[in-house]
Amino acid sequence: MAELIARTPCAGLLPLAVGGVDLTEESLGALTTLSPRRGQEAALSEALEAAHGMAFPAPNRTTGKAGARAIWFGRGQALLAGPEPDADLARLAALSDQSDAWAVVRLRGAGAVDVLARLVPLDLRAAAFRRGHTARSELAQMMASITRLGADDFQIMVFRSMAATLVGELKTAMEAVAARG
């Protein structure tokens, strides 16, 4: 019987390594935006804790851990990354499935900050943007979500349709940083 074949946003584009920096595609599992109903912010946070083990994140923060993470995603919005959302959450929040909407890549290695500094107008200094911090910003004119997973370890998300541009921009920046030696 015929079967639909899944294709990831960066298929054929990644992985990539330039200098000491690696760029790989991430598969986070289900992605669901959660927008709490009016007055249900606290209840949603509790339900999220009960169902998936993490609170609703404050602005610019993430909660949870690898495999099941809640990433602050904008005004009154978080992205649940990993598990399929518990059915109970729909009582307290508007849920939208975004599992296929985002290209998710990971930029790792010494120089990752320098690469991002060429593309993102964010203060990425270690004291200002710590591990577990996240931001909605732009990357080379693309709406982006950027999360710090470690000292030289970042998760970057842009719309799926822009995956090729994302990889191209990152590659150019990685090469430029590497060429400086």
């Binding site: 074949i5 294709r7 599992s99 909407a101």
Partner: peptide, 29 residues
């Protein structure tokens, strides 16, 4: 084919038509 999808009976062409939406990972296929 076992994938959750959405079907809309709408038409821009004036013909009997549908729009079929699947999660983007299956779009190419």
């Amino acid at each position: 084919l076992g994938v959750g999808a959405r079907l809309f009976r709408i038409s821009f062409s004036g013909e009997h038509a549908y729009e079929l939406a699947v999660p983007a990972r299956f779009g190419d296929s």
